[in-house]
Each structure stands twice: as structure tokens, then as C-alpha cells.
Design a protein around this nucleic acid. Structure first.
Ligand SMILES: [Mn+2]
Ligand SMILES: [Mn+2]
Ligand SMILES: [Zn+2]
Ligand SMILES: [Zn+2]
Lengths: 154, 154
DNA sequence: TTTTAAAAGCATCTTAGTTGCATTTATTTT
DNA sequence: AAAATAAATGCAACTAAGATGCTTTTAAAA
């Protein structure tokens, strides 16, 4: 998305067009995987204050611009929301995948969370479904490594 | 479970029978909901050192005696495992419920996690499915409160 | 251009979780 | 029963995510 695209997006949500916000949108929108808060902090360096980053992320989440995924360590990861999200409701009920090798968090946008029937008296709100395992990249690498190893030892 | 029961359990897992371990087993086994690390810390007071508690929990998890559930805040909660768990594999693939009012974490032991088909190349390991919402207790209380309110205003 | 509410920045704090090392203790061996 | 030992506890110090309060800056409106 273009800079003006992001500026429009901020305007639509009644948010001021500031450098920290535009930086965060730029980073998150060009990533296919979700990004952890510490990662964002590192990428931004001293360009943006730590606290400002937390506040930007919180605001974006509330406005339905990004959604938060807690990884296996309980750390917050963020990814852009789809077009269906708004201030009033998130529609991010897709499965997430957390690679235990590279720790990347993927949004499996096209894998919807199955319907579940709650026990009597329990009212379900949002559902968080995260699969831990080995991602495409990492299993490919592992396979390549194994092939090379086999060749050497033959 | 009786004290001797816990002692046998520790022995079966080649763990020494120590006070911190027995205390933790006592607390967790008599709770129906999972217990957070900070809760355990508070209940134990200065009876057990903070670090020891962390280590006991880690050991028990590795041995398949308890399992960990990350709540909405990313905090670790612990509950006893079923009889199928062992050092070599956990069978805790049931749904968890995290109440957004009282923050309790319930094991929905009888609600299995649905099978999911991963995208090509992704290898699924364990699956974490947590439903956020209002638990039976809290929705009952809310209903009672509303009924009382209606009576007054009539 | 002035005004102002919102946002950024900065210092400080809180708390979950970890690490290293010295001391204690449950269990084994003699 | 006493000694030996590996395992576990306790303590101090540290790390890192996240929050809070307050001041200064700035985007946008008047
Ligand atoms: Mn997602
Ligand atoms: Mn459970
Ligand atoms: Zn990976
Ligand atoms: Zn509740």
C-alpha cells in the first residue's frame, strides 16, 4: 500500500498522521508473517520511543487496523487485519501457525476456526487457535539439509 | 488424592518427595480450574521460594504431570494432566476457556480440538485452542444481578 | 497565525520469568 | 546408623515485556 493509502487509513479512523504510526503501518503491511513487539522495537531502533510503539499498537488494535497474536512465549505479535475489521468488531477468526524453529507467526487467513459448542452456561466470545509446528520454509530447509547429508555419507 | 498418592506419583517419575512439590500437587489437584503462576505464588506465600516454584512447575510439565495454558495476558496457568500424559507425550489436546470476567481458565476436557488441515509444507505439532468469553459462574451472577435490578425498577 | 487536543517522549515502575551459585536434603551406599 | 552424593532448594541479581504519570511537541482546526 502507498503512503497516501496509509494516510487515508489513519484519517478514516480519526487518527493523526504521525511518523510513528506511518512507520508501523509500513513495516507490518509489507510482512507476510506477524511481527512481535520486540522485533518492531528493534527494526524501529531509536526512530520511535518504546512507549509510543506500545501505544500505537494498542490504538491500531482497538481501531481494528491490526490484530494481536500471542506466541508460544506469551509475547505479542501483530499482523494487519483484513478489510472486515473495524473499531466495533474484529473478524480475525482464522487459525494462526507458530513455527517452533524460526518462531514466525503466520496468519492462515483461509483456514477458519471450526465452530465449537460450549458447555451449558458458558458464553463464547472470541476464539484463539494457534498451531505450533514447523513452517514451510523450515521444513524445506530441513529436507535440503538431510538430502545434502545423505549425499556426503554415500 | 491422598498424600501417599502424590508421593507415589513423584516416585513413579523419579522425583524426590519434597515439600514444595507436594504443596504444588495439593493445590493444583483440588482445583477445578487452572491456576496461574502468580496465584500459586500468592497461595504458597513464603512457604516456597519463587524460583523453586518455577522449577517445580517446569519439571512437572516435562514429566507430563501438569500442563500449561497461556491466558489472554500471556501468563502461564497450570492444571493437572489426565492419566494419558507421560514424560514422552502430552495428550492435553482439549479446548480451554478463559473467562474475561473472573479470568479463570477452565479445561474443557471433553471438548476435543477439531482436526485441521495445514497448508502445504506446514507440519502441525501441538494445537492450542482457547475460547475467551463468560464462564458459567459469571453469567449466572450477571443474570441474578439483572433480575434483582429489574425487580427494583418495577 | 493562533489555539488546542492528541500524540510523542522520557523517566520510572511493575512483574513474569531466568541464571548462577551456595546451601540443604532425600535417597543411596557402605 | 553413618557417610556419601546427586538432586533440589534458597538467595541474589538480572532480563525483558509492558504500564503509568507527566512534560513537551505537533497535527490539525479555528
Ligand atoms: Mn491473523
Ligand atoms: Mn487443560
Ligand atoms: Zn519456521
Ligand atoms: Zn468467570
Amino acid at each position: 500500500m502507498s503512503i497516501t493509502g496509509f494516510e487515508d487509513m489513519l484519517e478514516r479512523h480519526d487518527l493523526k498522521k504521525t511518523r510513528p504510526r506511518l512507520s508501523v503501518l509500513n513495516i507490518l503491511s509489507k510482512r507476510q508473517a506477524a511481527t512481535s513487539q520486540p522485533d518492531l522495537e528493534e527494526v524501529l531502533g531509536n526512530e520511535v520511543d518504546r512507549v509510543t510503539l506500545y501505544r500505537v499498537l494498542k490504538t491500531f488494535e482497538e481501531k481494528g487496523i491490526i490484530h494481536k497474536i500471542l506466541d508460544v512465549n506469551g509475547t505479542a505479535n501483530y499482523a494487519m487485519c483484513g478489510p472486515a475489521c473495524s473499531e466495533h468488531s474484529h473478524y480475525d477468526e482464522h487459525v494462526h501457525f507458530n513455527c517452533t524453529v524460526c518462531f514466525r507467526v503466520y496468519c492462515l487467513d483461509h483456514l477458519a476456526i471450526p465452530k465449537l459448542s460450549m458447555p451449558h452456561g458458558f458464553e463464547a466470545g472470541t476464539v484463539n487457535l494457534i498451531v505450533y509446528g514447523i513452517c514451510g520454509d523450515c521444513s524445506k530447509k530441513a529436507a535440503a539439509y538431510k538430502a545434502a547429508e545423505d549425499k556426503v555419507s554415500s
